[in-house]
Write a protein that binds this DNA or RNA. Structure first.
Lengths: 141, 141
DNA sequence: CAAAAACTATACCAAAATAGTATTGTTTAA
DNA sequence: TTAAACAATACTATTTTGGTATAGTTTTTG
C-alpha cells in the first residue's frame, strides 16, 4: 500500500523535465545529480518511461532525454503505471485464483475493493505535470 | 501499491464474524477452515485486530473470537490500519529524510501525494461491515 | 486440582519483491 | 573512428512478506 522508490524517482524526473524548455534534451546524469537519484537506477526507470511515450530518448553524443508529450498530457497515473504496471490494490482483482473462496462474483470484499481501486486510479489521473509546474512556480514566489 | 495478504485475510475474517449473531464467539480454527486461511497466520492477524478493539478474544476452553464492536462501526480502514499500520503512499509523507531533496515544504509531488493519500484514506473509511453484510444478503437471493 | 482447549508472545525462516549494480552492446555526433 | 550517450539483460544484497515453531498463559470442566 505504498508507491515504490522507482515511482517516486520517476515523478521527480518527469517534473524536472517538465520544467525545461519544450523539447529540451538533457542527459540522465544531469537529472540524477539534480534530483539525487542513483544514475543507473534512473536509466532503468527512464527506459520504462520511454516505452510508455512519456519521455523520448536520444542516443549517441549529445543525446539524453526530453518529454515525449506536453506536461499537461502526462498524469501521475501515466507515470505510475509506466513504472509499476497498472494500479491494483488486491490480488483477487487480477487473478480469481487468489480469491480464497473462489467466489469472486459473490464476494462483497472483492466488490468494494474494485470500487476503491477505481477511485484511486481516478485520483492519480486527476493530476498532471502542468499543474505540478504551476504549483511549483507559485511556491517560489 | 497493493494490500498485503494479511489485510485480505483480515477483511474476510471480520466479515465472517459480522455474519454471526451479535456477541457470538467462534474459535479461530473455524474461521480459518471456513475462509481457507492458515490457522497460525490467522491467529497472528486476530491479535492485531484485538489490539485495535475490532475483535475481542476469549482465552481458555470455550474461548475464541467475537466482534469487539457492531459491524456498522468497523470500516475497511479500521481493519487495514490495524493490520498494516496507517495508510501512507510514499515514504516522504512520513519521514522527511526520505525526501531526496530535503524540500518537503516546496515539493509539489509531496503536496499532491498528501492529497491523494487523504482521498484514499477516506475511501477505505467509507465502507463498513454492515454494508458488506447487506451486499452479501442481496447477492444470495 | 489437573488436564485440555483455547489464545498470547516471541522468535524464527523461506521465498518473493525491492532497490540498485554490472556487463556488454548499440547508436550517433564530431 | 572514437567517445559520449542510451539499451538490454542479468546479477545481487537487502528488506518485506507470508507463514511456522516453540514455549507460555488463561479458563473451563470433570
Amino acid at each position: 500500500m505504498i508507491l515504490n522508490q522507482a515511482t517516486d524517482y520517476a515523478f521527480r524526473a518527469v517534473l524536472y523535465l517538465s520544467l525545461l524548455q519544450p523539447g529540451e534534451i538533457v542527459e540522465a546524469k544531469v537529472i540524477a545529480e539534480n534530483q539525487h537519484i542513483p544514475l543507473r537506477f534512473l536509466l532503468k526507470i527512464l527506459r520504462s518511461l520511454a516505452k510508455a511515450g512519456i519521455v523520448k530518448s536520444y542516443q549517441g553524443v549529445g543525446g539524453g532525454y526530453a518529454l515525449g508529450k506536453i506536461p499537461a498530457d502526462i498524469t501521475l497515473k501515466d507515470v505510475l503505471e509506466a513504472v509499476e504496471g497498472s494500479i491494483r490494490i488486491n490480488k483477487c482483482l487480477i487473478d480469481p485464483d487468489y480469491c480464497n473462496k473462489q467466489a469472486t462474483e459473490h464476494c462483497p470484499v472483492h466488490h468494494v475493493l474494485a470500487s476503491i481501486q477505481q477511485t484511486i486510479s481516478q485520483e492519480f489521473d486527476k493530476y498532471n505535470f502542468e499543474q505540478l509546474k504551476e504549483y511549483m512556480k507559485q511556491n517560489l514566489k
